[in-house]
Structures are given as structure tokens and as C-alpha cells.
Amino acid sequence: MPDTLLLVDIQHDFLPGGALAVPGGDEIIPIANALMPAFAHVVASQDWHPADHGSFAEHHAGARAFDIGQLAGREQILWPTHCVQGTPGAAFASDLDIAGIHDVVRKGDNPRLDSYSAFYDNHHERATGLGQRLAARGTRHIHVMGLAADVCVKYTVLDALAEGFTVTLIVDGIRGVDMAPGDTEAAIEAMRAAGAVVVTHDMVLG
């Protein structure tokens, strides 16, 4: 049985109809549900922003969602308000079998730093604790899927590889924002180039 499956940000606000909807985001939920029983350990990351998070466009005068602004003196994509702590949008997708999740890691709770990766904030100033938890279990290999391919999945995979984990990317279990055409394909290639093995979920289930 494979050891660890990491589900990245499968939350209402990233699904069609959500505040920061990823096209086709709901299509990965059956894949996650099918995979979870095949793994000894399932971890889910959860975007968990305070309402005053500095990455939200509404907190920048005259800004619109997806503009490039500044946060704590650094360049920042300004996002629609999403995944605010305790709101329905921050909850895991209703159709996701949350009974199959063994551990949850929350990220993005510092209003002055965004946090795409499930391992660190964007500037590596603070770890989420995920790396330490996995290491404590003796985990060295993780399978990754979730949302969004070209943002949080990409940075999670790159951080995992940099931390010394081997990573299998479940490519039919991801969907991207594609702010620019081709972003998702470029993200997949970046993850592959960094060392991720790219498979489909049926290859994992055998």
C-alpha cells in the first residue's frame, strides 16, 4: 500500500461557483475519493485566511482581482477574497470523503504573507509543520493532487522535492487557474523537471 496521499486545497471556494473558482475543480473529487482507501496516510491542506489577509484585492485601493500589487514590500498577486477562516468557502468540498483524511494542515493564516505551498509560506519564513509531521512518520514518498495545479499544487510539489521527498504527481487529479494560457501545462513541466514522477490515478490503483 502506498504511504501518503496529499490533497491540496480541495475547498469550496476553489470549485465552480466559488470565490476563486478553478475550472473543472469539481472533477477531481471522485479521483480523490477513489484514491484515499489505497493509502495508509491521507493529508489534506486547507487555505485558511483571516478576513484581513493582505493578498485580497479588496484591501488595496483601486485594485482588482488578479492585479499585481505589494504585500509586505514584495510583489503579490491580488486575489479575490477566498477561504476565509470558518466560512463555508474555506470548508472542504461537500462531496469529498473527509472521513478518509487522517491529518489536516492549514496555511495562509498570516495576513502579511501568502502561502501557496502546503509546506511553507511563499517566502519560506515559516513552515506549516507538514514536513516535520511526514518525517516523524518516516514518510519519504508522497503522491500529490488537488487545486490549483499552477499555484498551490506546483509550489507544494516543488517544496516537497526541495525537502528531499520523492513526489508522484497525479496529473488527472489536478486542475489549474490558467491566469495566462498554458500556465497549467507549464506548471506540470516545471514539476516534472524538478523531479516529480507524473502518473494518472489508474496507474496508482493498478
Rank of each mutant, 00 (worst) to 15 (best):
L130D: 14
V204Q: 03
R106Y: 05
I174C: 12
W48N: 08
L158Q: 07
F165P: 04
A90F: 04
F165M: 07
D97E: 14
R133I: 09
I10C: 03
E75K: 14
G18L: 00
I101L: 04
D26M: 03
T128A: 04
V197R: 15
T166M: 05
V151D: 10
C83P: 03
R175H: 07
A196M: 09
N33G: 13
G54I: 02
T156M: 06
C152E: 03
T81F: 01
D172V: 05
F92N: 00
H49E: 07
P30W: 01
A65F: 13
D172C: 08
D202R: 10
L35E: 10
R74E: 14
L15Q: 01
A51Y: 10
G173L: 12
V177D: 06
G206E: 11
V199D: 10
P30H: 08
L158C: 08
H141W: 02
L161F: 11
R74M: 10
I77F: 12
D178I: 05
N122C: 14
K154N: 12
M179C: 11
V204D: 03
P16F: 08
A19G: 03
A21T: 04
I68K: 05
Q76E: 12
L205W: 00
M1H: 14
V153N: 09
V204E: 01
I10M: 06
P23E: 09
P37W: 14
G138H: 02
R133E: 08
D13G: 02
H201M: 00
Y120C: 11
I31F: 01
L35R: 05
A63M: 08
P88K: 01
A40T: 15
I174T: 13
G195K: 11
D26Y: 07
A19E: 08
I29Q: 04
Y120D: 13
A63H: 11
G173H: 05
T168W: 05
T139F: 00
V157T: 06
H60G: 03
V8C: 11
K107F: 09
F66M: 10
D67I: 00
T166W: 09
S94L: 02
A34H: 10
L161M: 11
H53Q: 03
H102N: 15
Y116D: 05
V84G: 01
P88M: 01
D202Q: 13
R140G: 08
G195D: 07
D178R: 09
A135Q: 09
T156L: 08
S117T: 10
Q46E: 08
N110I: 01
Y120P: 11
A63G: 06
H141E: 11
H143N: 13
G89P: 00
N122I: 07
T184R: 13
L113W: 13
H82S: 02
V22W: 02
V204T: 04
A51Q: 12
D97F: 00
F92S: 00
A57W: 12
D3V: 05
A162E: 15
H41T: 15
D47Q: 07
L158M: 09
D52M: 04
A61F: 05
I174N: 06
L35F: 06
H59D: 08
M36V: 14
P2N: 13
P181D: 14
T87K: 02
D13N: 02
Q70H: 09
L158E: 14
I142E: 06
V167P: 03
G24S: 03
A180R: 15
V167Q: 01
E75D: 15
D103E: 15
W79C: 07
F92Y: 10
A162L: 11
K107N: 06
Q46R: 13
